[in-house]
Amino acid sequence: MSTLAPVLAPGGRGIIGLKRLSGGASQETWAFSVRTDAGEETPLILRRVPGGESSVLSGNAIGLPMEARIQTLAARAGVPVPRIVHVCAPEDGLGEAYVMGRLSGETLAPKILRSDAFANARARLATECGEALAAIHAIDTGPLAELPASGGLDQLARYEETYLGLDLPSPVFDLTFQWLRANAPAPQPPVLVHGDFRLGNLMVDETGLVGILDWELAHRGDPREDLAWICVNSWRFGNAGKRVGGFGELEDLLAAYAAAGGHAFAPEDIDWWEMLGSLKWGIMCMIMYEAHRSDADPSVERVTIGRRVSETEMDLVNLLERAAK
């Protein structure tokens, strides 16, 4: 990798502090720095496809070259994202990979939600998320012809097929599939959707949002998917009273989204998508349990997450109860 140093930073001489970061289901993420002749250090991130490792959640991932292209377009549109420094070629010897800038900040939800250091950031985060999503959704997807498209009903059908195949019967999930299908809103014109917009994938510092990470589930779809995913109770990390990510009000998110050029949505426009989001997360928990059960990737973490299905069943019951009134 040190042969890449001059490409990654002007005057780059060597690589220091290479360290594998945890997290990332289907890709390896490494932190390192390039040291220059002048003794300066440029902090960077390498993302690469793992060498032969199983990746149960990678079925919908778009591939690293596409991620890099989207992040470049997003940066150009003023979205806070790490800048793409280099997309690796076969002669770089790293396989499918790219290098991007390393932002400094916090991604751990409990710290962002509970530390005093982030009090100011929390106060503006819903607004900043609304602005960032409006900018993402306004990106012209013309240059991204191969980017997959999936709307709400497409996802419902795909997740139902997965659910039925797992043979883990949940009456709450079955009822939710039926209800969502019978009550689906008319689709919005498709836009570039991030696909996993929530705490954990947002880099935040004391001043607010500094970067949107993990674009591997990006697709063409309905803008309400992104606005609702961050509202799913599982992503409020215990602060259920704050509908946006456990830190903000939905009205603020939607007002900032509309003010920045996005469609003017009402809070109730988000309900259907929030219910779909809870259902999807519940089935993702089942998929992770299945990776243990099938011996594809057995671990105490994978088997235990199977018991988080009941969290989403509870959330769905609460949402269905509201819908039935």
């Binding site: 709450v172 109770n233 409020r236 215990g238 602060n239 259920a240 018991r307 988080r308 009941s310 969290e311 069943e313 509870m314 959330d315 019951v317 609460n318």
Partner: peptide
């Protein structure tokens, strides 16, 4: 059922 399940699986869950 969901309440009984969560009292076993994750009694602190906000839902």
């Amino acid at each position: 059922t969901a309440i009984d399940r969560l009292n076993i699986d994750q009694p602190k869950y906000s839902g």
